[in-house]
Design a protein around this nucleic acid. Structure first.
Lengths: 205, 205
DNA sequence: CGTCATCCTGACCATTTGGTCAATAATGCC
DNA sequence: GGCATTATTGACCAAATGGTCAGGATGACG
């Protein structure tokens, strides 16, 4: 019954779809969904507009594909928290990993920020489903550590919110951060040091 | 030479300009600048599109007016930090004030979030100018308190970033927060309690 | 080399949207 | 009431934009 043998996916397809998604990431993250145009994406990819629409059914399709493709990568660090590891190390490692992503993938960060601001039209299912499960798992681990006295007690969910908020801030509001800090500084590096100290102090039992 | 006696500004003008700005806040904060249309703003205001453009020169003009009008209100809490007050109380009060704004003015919060994400095309001057000065003043106060040993030492600027990040998170990413917390909870109230504990622990000498 | 599927494009279309304008209606004021 | 100023609108425009399509170019492959 099942198995439609999906598609062959030629080398050209692979290459061009990747190219388009890359360009779309650039465009969407800079201007938001409405602000980006297919023309712009096509130009960035070095393709014609109809050609872009040959690989994707619509602008919306590109956007949705991009979001779902990148979501896994975005949530990966939290899933890598090791319940058998040293609690403080694990949490601080997670913070640093998220911070690293702010530096390395600011466009992805902005893409998600726009989506959530918009009301998450494409992610509502995932928000209430997969994301919640992933968070719940991490929360269980954190609570276990707190029960054992290996971590100072706090609300684990708001702890996670705080980590998300701060790490995203350095990516999404980079302009503001730079404006306040002035030139010649490395916001993310400084931020990483600050957050390490902050969470160390907060979570040390 | 100077003094063009500006404008009289009739009662109708006052009322309609206010109406339009209110409607524009609704539209821009929900859909971003590009996503909102003059038609939509006009409909929300119960006016015709040309009538909206009678009061404002362009869509851009509405947006800029809105941003600059609301910026003062947005930055007010930080300017109310009292250098003569009890340090911890002052900082925690600032956090609570910002949190209160997340609850009471989420649209304003999103408006600024969109603007910064976009690269702050309308606020660049203010970011590098007024904002920086305001922050510097607060930083001076914080550093003074730290020097006197009344506040634990941290980077004051990143401390401020963290407050901004967290308080804005509850407004701008409300959907995500609600999805993770589940129904029947009050994110902002819980967040306020969490942040109070966090900063108390971080800043108590 | 032939042929079949994949790939690509110019031209085109409908809709949306920011903005204009001349004409009309209210309003304020003497 | 009469007149000047202010408000308001329907009709209209040009540009931008998402998307279509028929036909041509370019591969893959026996």
């Amino acid at each position: 019954m099942t198995d439609a043998t999906v598609p062959p996916m030629t080398r050209i397809q692979q290459k061009n779809r990747d190219l388009i998604l890359q360009s779309a990431l650039e465009a969407f993250s800079a201007n938001g969904f409405r602000g980006a145009t297919i023309d712009q994406i096509a130009r960035l990819a070095g393709l014609s507009k109809p050609n872009v629409l040959y690989y994707f059914a619509s602008k919306d399709d590109i956007h949705k594909t991009l979001l779902t493709t990148l979501l896994d990568m975005w949530l990966a660090p939290m899933q890598q928290i090791n319940a058998q590891g040293e609690p403080l190390t694990e949490v601080l490692g997670y913070v640093q990993a998220k911070m690293q992503m702010s530096r390395d993938f600011p466009r992805e960060s902005r893409l998600f920020a726009y989506e959530i601001l918009q009301g998450a039209p494409h992610l509502t299912q995932i928000l209430g489903g997969g994301l919640r499960d992933i968070v719940d798992r991490a929360v269980a681990v954190l609570e276990d550590w707190m029960d054992k006295g290996q971590l100072a007690r706090t609300d684990p969910r708001h702890l996670i919110f705080s980590i998300w908020a701060m790490t995203q801030h350095y990516a999404d509001f980079e302009i503001q951060v730079r404006a306040v800090l002035g030139p010649g500084r490395d916001p993310v590096q400084e931020g990483a040091a600050f957050l390490d100290a902050l969470y160390r102090k907060l979570l040390t039992p």
